[in-house]
């Protein structure tokens, strides 16, 4: 286990976790979400192979209401 920052909060994750695992962890199916790892976009086709590293800053973003 190690710690990452997930949507601004500390999160313990299992070593070897992928971006897809992280999406499952937060409860997102990833379909309408953008994922950034250390400010870089991880495209849907790469999420199941992108391995998360200790200290990574991960953002899972969606569209919400806005003017």
């Amino acid at each position: 286990m190690f710690t990452i920052e997930l949507n601004g909060k500390k999160q313990e994750v299992t070593a070897g976790s992928t971006v897809s695992d992280i999406l499952a962890l937060v409860g997102s199916n990833g379909k309408n979400a953008a994922v950034l790892v250390n400010e870089k976009i991880v495209r849907p086709e790469n999420r199941s192979t992108a391995i998360v590293q200790e200290g990574d800053r991960i953002e899972v973003l969606v569209f919400a209401g806005g003017g």
């Binding site: 997102s28 899972v60 973003l61 969606v62 569209f63 919400a64």
Partner: peptide
């Protein structure tokens, strides 16, 4: 229509507007 980006929140799934729009 305009939309805004925000962090995904499991407690506010209905706020995800991409699908409905």
């Amino acid at each position: 229509v305009t939309v805004a980006l925000r962090r995904f929140n499991r407690e506010q799934l209905s706020d995800d507007l991409f699908g409905p729009l």
